[in-house]
Amino acid sequence: MTDHHAHPRPYPGQELSVGEVAERSGVAVSALHFYEREGLIHSRRTPGNQRRFRREVLRRLSFIRIAQRVGIPLAEIRSALDSLPDGRTPTRQDWETLSAQWRAELDDRIRRLQQLRDDFTGCIGCGCLSLDRCGLVNPHDRLSAEGPGPRRLVG
């Protein structure tokens, strides 16, 4: 079994410092540290305890940022990355496969956003204190029967 967290000794230019990764990817150093803690990316430590990332992390970060931008939760992104053989960096084929899996969820999100956009003038948000004119989530003030205050955001 291959340990995808271990890196062989690098060739010159094969690895990047955390600052170089941040600069090249446009991702803040703090976000890189967070992604690493969450298991989305991996680095090795030099004898001086500095992080070194393989260049492939740039493609992996692009994958993460694109998926986040369309609303895929980090847990699903991690699961998708973990499903790749040997923890490899996603290829074009990997992205096509994963995006096909996420298509139904994204289509549903698009539909809800379009509905919100189209009905936004009369809406002040989900759980809108059971306003009687909310046609999105509370037509005819049906949530008022459940009590006062926001109903959909409770819990």
Score class of each variant (00 low, 15 high):
M1R: 12
H5Y: 15
H5S: 14
P8G: 13
P8V: 10
R9D: 11
R9H: 15
R9V: 14
Y11P: 00
Y11R: 14
P12N: 13
G13D: 14
G13M: 15
Q14E: 15
Q14W: 13
Q14C: 12
E15P: 01
E15A: 15
L16V: 15
L16E: 08
G19P: 12
V21K: 01
V21T: 01
A22V: 14
S25K: 11
G26K: 15
G26D: 15
V27A: 00
A28D: 14
V29M: 14
L32M: 13
L32G: 02
L32C: 15
H33V: 13
F34V: 00
F34W: 00
Y35V: 00
E36L: 10
L40E: 00
H42K: 05
H42Q: 12
S43W: 04
S43N: 14
R44I: 13
R45Y: 13
T46Q: 08
Q50G: 01
R51V: 02
R51G: 04
R51C: 05
R52D: 10
R52G: 07
R52E: 06
R54I: 12
R54G: 13
V57K: 03
L58R: 08
L58M: 12
L58Q: 09
R59K: 11
R60V: 02
L61G: 00
S62F: 04
R65S: 08
I66L: 13
A67I: 12
A67S: 03
R69A: 08
P73H: 11
L74K: 07
A75Y: 01
E76R: 02
I77R: 00
R78M: 01
S79D: 02
S79K: 06
L81C: 06
D82F: 11
L84D: 01
L84P: 07
D86M: 07
G87M: 10
G87K: 06
R88D: 03
R88N: 05
R88G: 08
R92K: 06
R92P: 06
Q93W: 03
Q93M: 04
W95C: 03
W95N: 06
L98A: 08
L98F: 06
A100H: 11
A104R: 07
L106R: 11
D107P: 03
D108V: 09
D108E: 07
D108A: 08
R111A: 07
R112S: 03
L113T: 04
L113D: 04
L113W: 07
L116F: 11
F120H: 05
G122A: 04
G122P: 07
C123T: 02
I124H: 08
C126M: 04
C126S: 08
S130V: 06
R133S: 03
N138K: 04
P139Y: 05
D141N: 09
S144K: 06
S144Q: 04
S144L: 04
G147I: 08
P148S: 10
G149S: 04
R151G: 05
R151C: 04
R151S: 05
R152D: 11
L153P: 03
V154M: 11
